[in-house]
Every structure is written in structure tokens, then in C-alpha cells.
Design a protein around this nucleic acid. Structure first.
Lengths: 139, 139
DNA sequence: AATCGGTTCATACTAAAGTACTAAAATCCT
DNA sequence: AGGATTTTAGTACTTTAGTATGAACCGATT
């Protein structure tokens, strides 16, 4: 992360120096005015700044998407329960989850209830919140 | 939206012209080299580009974890409804939200129901999901 | 063979959520 | 000031969620 920053800024300085050399030649040859050179440099770095911020924003969004599988086991959540949890978080009702997993609604109720105990919550909306806090799901 | 873009670019052009005038004086006075002026302009516009993208990301709110306030209005969600939504997402029950906002539970039910219509959902768990998709809340 | 964890399902119940109205205030806007 | 919107609140009802308990089944472990 720090390495990348150093690399980017080094590249920028080099790019700037190259531009300066080029501008010197064109200026001395009388092909272009100083104003035009400065305007081009400004435009270039405006675009570079835009691009850098864009990449920065993308990496920020990606880095938060890790799932802590160890914590799932640590909480004693079984495979099937986790499967139910994933559907629950999508916003499905018990009946809908039951249909999706080809089991009865009462089965889902059992899984959901034991999930609540393991997550130490009382409602499914709280379960969503806790799952997010524990990095158990892809937010 | 378009007006803002025009305004921003007009400001940029004016800023550039001002910088050019300043650079002319300093260059002719021999106080600074052309290279330094160009470097300063480059740095300035790098920062401007960074800043512009940041604002752009806020309004679009796609990559970053920023809240899209415009979409809240676009969906017709009122201030109070949004307040209720925030508590709902925390995992609070209607009664708990009512106590937190010092109103009755039936009032919360009214707000929640109209939120569901505006978010086009049927359950509060779905509302949480939709709010996340619309970047209406801080996930 | 007996035990344990996980999955399945049922019944019966209570609690919470959600819908569909109606309506009175408070606030905002011009 | 007057109209529109927001916020508030109620009643009555249906649906979904959640709890408690018991029980059958299966695969792996000891």
C-alpha cells in the first residue's frame, strides 16, 4: 500500500520532468507558447488526479469484502445454518427460504432460532447487523 | 447536474488563465523558472482532479461507502422516514424505534409501511437489502 | 452398540410485523 | 392566509416471526 503510493508519486515526478524537457524544446523552437504548454500540463494532471482517485475508491470498496470463515466455526454455526443465514440476509421470509432449500418452514424456523442463539440476537434484522459486524457475510 | 459541470469547468478555465497571467509576471521578473511554474500548475490540477473525483464519487456513490442523498429524495423518502429507516437497519423493533424517537408504535408502523412502498419491498429485511443497493445508508 | 452433532419436521403457542383504512395536528411553501 | 405535505396516532385485522418442546433420522465418532 505504501509501496504503491511511492511508486505512483515517483512516476508522476518523472512524467513531470519529461514534460518539462519536451516543453523546453517546443518552446525554444517557437512552435508553441508557454501558455499552451502549461494548459496541457494542467489538463494532463487533472486527468491523472481523476484517475488516481477512481482507483483509490475502487480499492476501498474491494477491501471490505472478506469473509471470516474462522469466526463462523468459532460461533458454532453449521453449514446448513449458514446457508439459511445467507438467504435470510437477502431479505427472504422463512417460507421463501424453505422453498429455496426444499425443506419445510418449521425446519427453517429451527435453524433461524438456533442462529439467533449463536449470534446472540432476538430478531432477524439484528442477525443481519451482527453478521455484518462479525464479517461473516459479504456486505 | 449539467449546470454544475459547466460551472466547474468554467471556474477551471478562469483559474488556469489567472495562473498563466501570474506565471508571466513571475517569469518576466526572473523570480522563478518556467519549470517551477509548470510544476506548481501540475500539482494544483492534480489536487483539483482528486477533489473533483471525490465529489463525483459522493454524488454517484457507487464505489465508495458514501451516502447518496439525492436518491433518498428521488425515492420520495422524507426526513422522518429516513430516520426510522436508520433505526430499522440497526436491528431495532418498531417498539424500540418508537421509544428512541419518542413517538407511538403505530406512528412507526405508518412510517415503515410507507418506506416499504417507496423502496418497493414487503419486509424490513428486504428494506435493508434495498437500502444497501441504493447506497442510501452507510454499510 | 451407543453416543453425539446435525438436519429434519411437527404442534401449539405468543409476539411482532405488516396492511388498510381514517384523521388530526404540525410544518412548509408561496 | 391557505393549500400541500409531513408527522402523528388510532382501530381492526391478517400475516409472519419467534419460542418451546418433542421426536425421528442419519452419519460419524468412540
Amino acid at each position: 500500500m505504501v509501496k504503491k503510493t511511492i511508486f505512483v508519486f515517483s512516476s508522476l515526478i518523472i512524467a513531470l520532468l519529461v514534460l518539462l524537457q519536451l516543453s523546453k524544446y517546443t518552446y525554444m523552437a517557437g512552435d508553441a507558447s508557454v501558455e499552451l504548454v502549461i494548459a496541457l500540463v494542467a489538463l494532463t494532471f487533472l486527468v491523472v488526479g481523476f484517475y488516481l482517485k477512481k482507483n483509490n475508491a475502487q480499492t476501498n470498496a474491494i477491501e471490505t469484502g472478506e469473509i471470516d470463515f474462522k469466526k463462523i466455526k468459532a460461533l458454532g454455526i453449521s453449514d446448513r445454518e449458514y446457508e439459511v443465514l445467507q438467504h435470510l440476509i437477502k431479505g427472504l421470509s422463512n417460507k421463501e427460504i424453505a422453498d429455496a432449500l426444499f425443506v419445510s418452514e418449521s425446519t427453517i424456523k429451527t435453524h433461524v432460532s438456533s442462529l439467533f442463539v449463536k449470534l446472540d440476537v432476538k430478531r432477524r434484522t439484528q442477525a443481519i447487523q451482527k453478521a455484518k459486524e462479525h464479517q461473516i457475510i459479504d456486505a
